[in-house]
C-alpha cells in the first residue's frame, strides 16, 4: 500500500480533530495543516496543478478568510449536545458510498476506462500544439468554457461579498433587534 494511504489516515485524523476541537482558532490552524497535507498528497498523486491551487487557496486564502471571520466572531465554540441523527446519516452515507465504489477501478489502475476514452486525445492534442502542460491546454482550450464559468464564479463571489460586506458595518442595537421586522419592506 503506497504512502498516500498512510497520509490519508493522517488526513482523517486531522478532520476528526477539527470536528472535536472547540477552540476555533486551533481548528483553523488544523484546517491550514489539513490543506497543506492534502495539497502534498495531490502532488504525490501527480496532480501538480491541483496541488498548486489547493496550497494557494486552502492554506493561503481560506485560512486568512477564516481568521478574518474569527476576528469578528467568537473564538470559542459553545458546547452543544451530542446528536445521534447526523452521525447515523453520515454512517449511512458512508456505507452507501462504499457499496457504490467497491467495483470501481483500484488506485492507479492503468486499465481504467477513464484513461482510455477521451484523455489520450487530449494528451495527443496538447503535444501537437506544443503546449507541454496538458492541464493548461484542457483547461484553457478544450474545456475553456468551464474555465470561463470558473472565472465567473470567482467574480460572482466577489460581487456577493462586496454586496454583503461592502457597506458600512451595521451593528444593530438591542431595541432594533427586538422589533419584529420579518418581511416588511420600507417604502421610498
Amino acid at each position: 500500500m503506497p504512502i498516500e494511504a498512510l497520509l490519508f489516515v493522517l488526513l482523517v485524523v486531522l478532520a476528526l480533530a477539527i470536528a472535536h476541537m472547540r477552540d476555533l482558532f486551533a481548528a483553523a490552524m488544523l484546517f491550514s495543516i489539513f490543506s497543506l497535507l492534502s495539497a502534498g498528497m495531490f502532488t504525490l498523486m501527480d496532480a501538480v496543478d491541483v496541488a498548486f491551487t489547493e496550497a494557494a487557496v486552502g492554506a493561503g486564502i481560506s485560512t486568512v478568510l477564516i481568521l478574518g471571520t474569527l476576528a469578528l466572531t467568537s473564538n470559542e465554540e459553545r458546547n452543544g449536545p451530542f446528536r445521534l441523527t447526523p452521525l447515523l446519516v453520515c454512517l449511512g452515507l458512508g456505507a452507501t458510498l462504499i457499496y457504490g465504489t467497491r467495483d470501481l477501478p483500484v488506485y492507479g489502475d492503468p486499465g481504467a476506462v477513464v484513461h482510455h476514452h477521451v484523455a489520450p486525445e487530449y494528451i495527443e492534442g496538447s503535444h501537437n500544439i506544443h503546449i507541454p502542460n496538458v492541464v493548461t491546454t484542457v483547461l484553457a482550450s478544450y474545456r475553456g468554457y468551464d474555465t470561463f464559468g470558473e472565472t465567473t464564479v470567482v467574480f460572482t463571489a466577489g460581487l456577493g461579498v462586496l454586496l454583503l460586506l461592502g457597506g458600512a458595518a451595521r451593528r444593530r442595537d438591542p431595541e432594533e433587534e427586538a422589533a419584529p421586522q420579518a418581511t416588511s419592506e420600507v417604502t421610498s
Partner: peptide, 26 residues
C-alpha cells in the same frame, strides 16, 4: 515551483496568524 508556493503560503499564513493573535484582526 510548487514547493516554493508552499513555503510562501506558509510564511504569509504564519504572519496572518500572528497578526490575528496579537491584534485580534487583520
Amino acid at each position: 515551483d510548487l514547493a516554493l508556493v508552499y513555503a510562501l503560503m506558509n510564511f504569509i499564513g504564519v504572519i496572518a496568524v500572528l497578526k490575528f493573535v496579537r491584534f485580534g484582526n487583520l
